[in-house]
Simulated assay, not measured.
Amino acid sequence: MAEAQCLLQRLGYGLGAAGVDGWYGTNTEHAVTSPQTSELLEPDGTLRAKTWHKLRTTVPPAKR
C-alpha cells in the first residue's frame, strides 16, 4: 500500500494528515478514485491492474 500512496502523492493527490502510512483508509481510497475518474477508469477506489499501470506510468506535473 505504501507504494501506491507514494505514487499518488508524487502525482499530487492528497492523502490527508496521515500521508504515506501503508494503510488503505478513506483518504487513500479517495486519492485512488481521483486518477481513476480523470483517466476514465471505473472510479471504485480499488487498485486494479489498470489503476496500477496509470499510477506507475503517469508523469508527475512539473513544479513551478
Score class of each variant (00 low, 15 high):
G19K: 06
G19I: 07
V20W: 04
V20T: 05
V20R: 04
D21A: 05
D21Q: 01
G22F: 00
G22P: 05
G22A: 03
W23D: 03
W23A: 10
W23E: 11
W23R: 13
Y24S: 05
G25F: 02
G25I: 03
T26Y: 03
T26A: 09
T26F: 05
N27K: 07
N27S: 09
N27D: 13
T28D: 01
T28W: 01
T28A: 05
T28H: 01
E29Q: 14
H30N: 12
H30D: 11
A31L: 07
V32H: 05
V32L: 15
V32A: 03
T33S: 04
T33W: 01
T33Y: 00
S34W: 10
S34K: 14
P35A: 06
Q36M: 03
Q36G: 06
T37E: 12
T37H: 08
T37W: 12
S38T: 14
S38A: 14
E39D: 12
L40N: 14
L40S: 15
L40V: 11
L41G: 00
L41A: 02
E42H: 10
E42M: 06
E42A: 08
E42C: 10
P43V: 02
P43R: 01
P43Q: 01
D44L: 11
D44P: 09
D44H: 12
D44C: 10
D44G: 15
G45C: 07
T46W: 15
T46S: 14
T46V: 15
T46F: 14
L47Q: 10
L47F: 13
L47K: 09
L47E: 10
L47V: 15
R48M: 08
R48A: 12
R48I: 08
A49Y: 10
A49W: 13
A49K: 10
K50H: 14
K50G: 05
K50T: 14
K50Y: 10
K50M: 15
K50F: 14
T51I: 08
T51Y: 06
T51V: 09
T51L: 06
W52S: 11
H53R: 12
H53Q: 13
K54E: 07
L55Y: 04
L55C: 04
L55R: 00
L55D: 01
L55E: 04
R56G: 10
R56M: 15
T57Y: 13
T57D: 08
T58G: 04
T58V: 09
T58Q: 12
T58N: 08
V59W: 05
V59H: 02
V59E: 08
P60L: 07
P61M: 11
P61F: 09
P61I: 07
P61G: 08
